[in-house]
């Protein structure tokens, strides 16, 4: 099972599930990171964490640990 933090910069995938809860889940949903959305990893911050991803027209930053909760579809 691949997760968002395993993408390499420039790589794109579709979200299968978001395995977080509470505020982080709601915020991720509101920003467009929800099942079915296509996301692309843009880059990592200078010290490797956080990550920047693109979903639709939104640019979203999230920490490595938070990105681990986003499960991607295979292939």
């Amino acid at each position: 099972m691949r997760r968002l933090d395993e993408l390499t910069p420039g790589e794109e995938a579709r979200v299968r599930a978001v395995e977080t809860s509470g505020h982080v889940l709601r915020r991720l949903f509101a920003l467009g990171l929800r099942p079915g959305a296509r996301v692309r990893l843009l880059r990592r911050a200078p010290l490797g964490d956080p990550l920047e991803v693109r979903v639709g027209e939104s640019f979203v930053a999230l920490r490595q640990a938070e990105a681990r909760g986003v499960v991607l579809e295979e292939g």
Partner: peptide, 9 residues
């Protein structure tokens, strides 16, 4: 604290 935020254009 969380790291989730939008980077506005």
């Amino acid at each position: 604290s969380t790291g989730v935020m939008e980077l506005p254009p």
